[in-house]
Simulated scan of single mutants.
Amino acid sequence: MSELLNLQQVSAGYGDAIVISKVDLRLQTGESLAVLGRNGTGKTTLLNTIIGVTRHRGGTIALTGKDLTGARPDKRALAGIGWVPQERNIFKSLTVEENLTAVARPGPWTPARAYEMFPRLKERRSNMGNQLSGGEQQMLAIARALVLNPKLMLLDEPTEGLAPIIIEELLAALKRIIRDEGMSAIVVEQHAQKILGVTDSAIILDRGTIVHAGSSRSLIENPAPLEQHLGVTAKKKPRQAASR
C-alpha cells in the first residue's frame, strides 16, 4: 500500500489557543483509523486541521505526497478529502436527489450506488432535506461525501445523537464502505468499542497529543488504554460455574 496521508509535527488551534500539538500521523491507502478520546481532547480539531479550517501553528500536512499545509479548504477538497461534519451540513432546502447530484463527481460512487448503500435514501429521494429524520440526514451526509469520490473520508461523530437501532445501521454501512469497498477513512467516534470493529487502527488523544496508537484489534483484545484514557470499562467475561 502507498502512503495516503502524512502529518508531521502538526500543531493547530483557534485564535491564540493551540489545541493539538506536534501530532505525527500516517495513513496508508485503503486504511481506516479511529480517533478516540474524551470530550475536549482535540479530536474534532484534528479533523478540522486536515480540512484546513483551523489556525496552523506548525508542522506539515501531505496527501498522496502533495503538500497541503498552506492550501485552502476548497483546494484540499479538490485534492481528495471528503468531510462529514458533526453538523451534517446537508442542503435542507433541496431534495435528497438534488443533494447528491449537485456535488457528484466522476468516479465509482454514483447517486445510484449511494442509494444501494442506503435504501432509506432511495425511498425518500424526493423528500427535502429538512423532512428527513436525524439518522436519514446523517446517511445523506455520508452519501454526499461518497459521491464526491474522495481519496480520504473524514467523519466526525457520525453516530452522535442517534437512536441505537440507527447507530447499528450506520455502523454496518460504514463497515461495508470501509472494509468491503476499501475506502480510506478517519472516524472520530464516542462509541469506542463499536467503531474499533470497523477500523484497522486507532489513536487516543489527550490534551491535544497522541497518547496511544496501535491496531484496533489490539485495543479490543487489551482495552487497558481505553480504561485509562477514556474511562471505558471492558465487559467482563461471565464466570464459569465451579464443577462439582
Rank of each mutant, 00 (worst) to 15 (best):
I186S: 06
A173Q: 11
L140R: 11
P225F: 00
M128F: 15
A173D: 04
S133W: 06
M139W: 03
I195A: 13
K236W: 06
P238W: 04
L146I: 01
E160Y: 11
K175G: 15
I204Y: 12
L140P: 09
L148G: 05
A172D: 08
L140A: 07
L154C: 09
G231P: 06
F118T: 01
G129P: 07
M183E: 07
L154W: 09
D156V: 01
I195L: 11
D200R: 11
N149Q: 05
A202C: 10
L196N: 01
K194E: 15
R207W: 07
R179G: 08
D180M: 06
S184E: 06
V147W: 02
Q137A: 10
T233F: 15
G134L: 02
L155K: 10
P158Y: 03
P158D: 07
R217I: 02
L219W: 02
G129E: 01
A143C: 14
R179C: 02
E168F: 04
D200K: 12
Q137R: 11
L152T: 01
I142F: 03
I165W: 03
N130S: 11
N130P: 05
S201K: 15
K237A: 14
A141F: 00
T199M: 13
N222L: 09
S216R: 04
M128D: 06
N130H: 14
V188P: 07
L154S: 05
E221C: 11
K122P: 03
K237L: 14
A192S: 05
L121W: 00
R239D: 12
H212G: 06
I142E: 01
A234K: 00
R239Y: 02
S216Q: 05
I204D: 11
L140E: 08
E181S: 10
R176I: 06
V211S: 02
A202W: 08
I220K: 09
R179A: 10
G182E: 14
R125P: 11
R125S: 15
V188H: 04
T233M: 14
L132P: 07
S126M: 14
N127L: 08
K175D: 13
S215A: 05
R124S: 11
R176N: 10
Q138K: 13
V187L: 08
L230D: 02
D200T: 13
S201F: 08
D156T: 02
D206P: 07
E168L: 09
N222M: 07
A163P: 09
D156R: 05
L154K: 06
G161R: 03
A172V: 10
L205E: 04
H191G: 09
V187A: 08
S218L: 05
P158E: 08
A185N: 04
G208N: 03
I177P: 07
M117K: 00
F118V: 02
L171D: 00
E157P: 09
G129T: 08
S215Y: 10
Q131V: 12
A173K: 12
D200Q: 14
M183K: 00
